[in-house]
Design a protein around this nucleic acid. Structure first.
Lengths: 357, 357
DNA sequence: CTGAAAGCGCTTACAG
DNA sequence: CTGAAAGCGCTTACAG
């Protein structure tokens, strides 16, 4: 025997091996080993204040030594609530989804909660029925709704009816602050407008997204207010509506380039459409940025890969996901209402914009 | 009273409303209404053959009328197994993750299984410990391992030890066919090589990924065998190793363009590096495809947005995810061992390749 | 083919 | 501050 291995360390090993062979420990094992009732162990697990400090310590030590982890299914069954967070999304942009996911998981790490993903078609007539079954069957603890799903008021009503917590990620406040992460897309768009104006551009065009996306409405509003700050306004002839797609960006930009008095700069409300504008500019024989400045939104991976690199407005997607996750899961260590759950879009300047010729 | 509302239809409504107000129905409600024991209802739910057809029908009707859905937590607790499928990924490419997710969920739709996502750092020394807790605590029914996580033999061993089903998605068979979805990246790379050779290129360069990615190894192998089919071979001076990143693509392509006898075509083992090669070509004053043909792999969204549009090898990611999902969840309707779980990469020809000048 | 009993691993009342 | 009993909604043996 290694005689220097004595005292608590040895006891710990012995306990850790106890039953380690087959199944994991249950609350009963822990209770027995700690010499208390399972109810007391339960109180410790759930951080009940009604446990003598001494008892708590003893139980916690056993928990640590045995590596005991409460069974989420059993807890969920008794609680009538699972430890699952749902991510309900309908976004064509994979980067958004993955970044949000990553952020939510940052927040969930170590909490015992897991993330269940659910892509949906927000225009489907069966959406609400599907969501009802999803939430009820899984007894979801809460859900995260990125835009544009976050803009579905009927879905939000359903969640309230089902007693399911939710956090809406959107470009503008549209609910109680305690269940909103606001990205203020409008502020980013305003900054974009000021940037172009400060480069001397007067004829600045806009290619917007579908009005069914609140983000497009807000970005446009912000853009116009940014222009106004510089004493400019959006010429209706220079306002084109796209569909947030590459093809729609090409078409809208072509129309703009065919104008007698064509714009010297174009702000596209996402990078996909900006990519389309690149193609249209090339076809029209226009150089970027010498003949036309182009600015996008999202700072998608593609932005930095285009030539010239596309200036764009970046949203901190992962941070937004993390905030949403933190708002959903209980964490006594965190001052829940400390900060407003808002983020600031950031203008990333690249070579696609320049002083007006 | 609406006297035309009689018979089964009325009974159905009455039953549907029964208790509909508060909670959802349980197995006990269904048993009582069907006049059988809960065990019999359980047998129907689990498609046991030991139920009289008549009894089964009666129970199924009640289930349908009441909208009863078994509680997955309770079932899981009794089964000692959850109805959750895990997706464990470590892939810098969001498109891969989202497409795989979508495909897995296609397969899970209507089965009652849900997908829990888990990004990991495959180089972390704590990976195995984390995975053990994840799988054990959630009592995962099974997991999907896309590459490069699928290449981690230690992780696979752990899953076996824990009795957790798994499906590995990889570029080449590396396990029993019943737990593999094979994408045969090598075949796609061979096709790429033949394509370039058939355009008359002799000096074809390769920019590979890190050897720690099996996909890179397989793509390279396939590329070389494709060259061999055309009586060509890879000149070691034209083989550069990248890191699957944009920057590494720039650096590798620059080296190639500085060679006295530079290549007339470059095959990049992913589109990120091909984007880098575009930049390097521009800097070197080389036109694509007139001076140099470039071909990528992945057919990422960026491929069609670059100028000129990048030819690339496409993998049916969503199909691969769907296959993995189908292999994991039990489905009596499907002939599990019917098809080999393999897919075929597809060469997407675009303007970035041309006959050698 | 069907059912009564016991149990999965927790928690909620309810007592002390 | 602590515990014995009952229950969450299912399933596994075990009987018939």
């Amino acid at each position: 025997m290694a005689s220097h291995e004595e005292g608590p360390e040895r006891k710990r090993r012995a306990r850790a091996q106890d039953g380690d062979a087959k199944r994991r420990h249950t609350i009963n094992d822990v209770a027995r080993m700690a010499g208390v009732s399972k109810k007391t162990v339960s109180r410790v697990i759930n951080a009940s204040p009604f446990v003598k400090e001494e008892t708590r310590k003893a139980v916690l030590e056993i928990i640590k030594d045995t590596g005991y982890v409460p069974d989420p299914q059993a807890r969920g069954l008794a609680f009538r609530r699972s430890f699952l967070i749902g991510l309900i999304y309908d976004n064509p942009n994979p980067q958004h989804t993955v970044s949000h996911q990553q952020g939510i998981l940052d927040a969930l790490k170590g909490t015992g909660f897991e993330l269940v993903v659910r892509p949906v078609d927000r225009s489907s007539p069966r959406l609400l029925d599907e969501m009802r079954v999803f939430v009820e069957r899984q007894k979801l603890f809460g859900v995260v709704l990125p835009s544009p799903v976050s803009e579905d008021e009927a879905l939000v009503e359903l969640l309230k009816e089902l007693g399911c917590k939710y956090v809406r990620i959107a470009s503008v406040p549209m609910d109680d602050a305690s269940c909103m992460v606001v990205s203020h897309d409008g502020r980013g768009a305003a900054e974009a407008a000021r940037h172009l104006a400060d480069l001397g551009h007067k004829r600045i065009a806009l290619i917007s997204g579908p009005p069914s996306f609140r983000s497009s409405v807000e970005r446009r509003r912000g853009f116009e207010s940014g222009l106004a700050e510089r004493g400019l306004s959006l010429d209706p002839a220079l306002a084109k509506q796209g569909a947030y797609t590459y093809e729609s960006g090409i078409a809208a930009a072509r129309e703009l380039f065919e104008l007698k008095d064509r714009p010297t700069a174009i702000f596209c409300l996402n990078d996909e459409m900006a990519s389309g504008a690149y193609l249209a500019a090339r076809d029209a024989g226009l150089r970027i940025p010498e003949d036309v400045s182009i600015l996008g939104f999202d700072d998608a991976p593609i932005a930095a890969r285009l030539w010239p690199p596309l200036a764009s407005v970046r949203l901190p997607l992962r941070d937004m996901g993390r905030m949403a996750g933190e708002m959903l899961v209980p964490n006594p260590l965190r001052d829940t209402h400390a900060d407003a759950h808002e983020v600031r879009p950031e203008l990333v300047v690249r070579a696609s914009t320049a002083k007006v010729g």
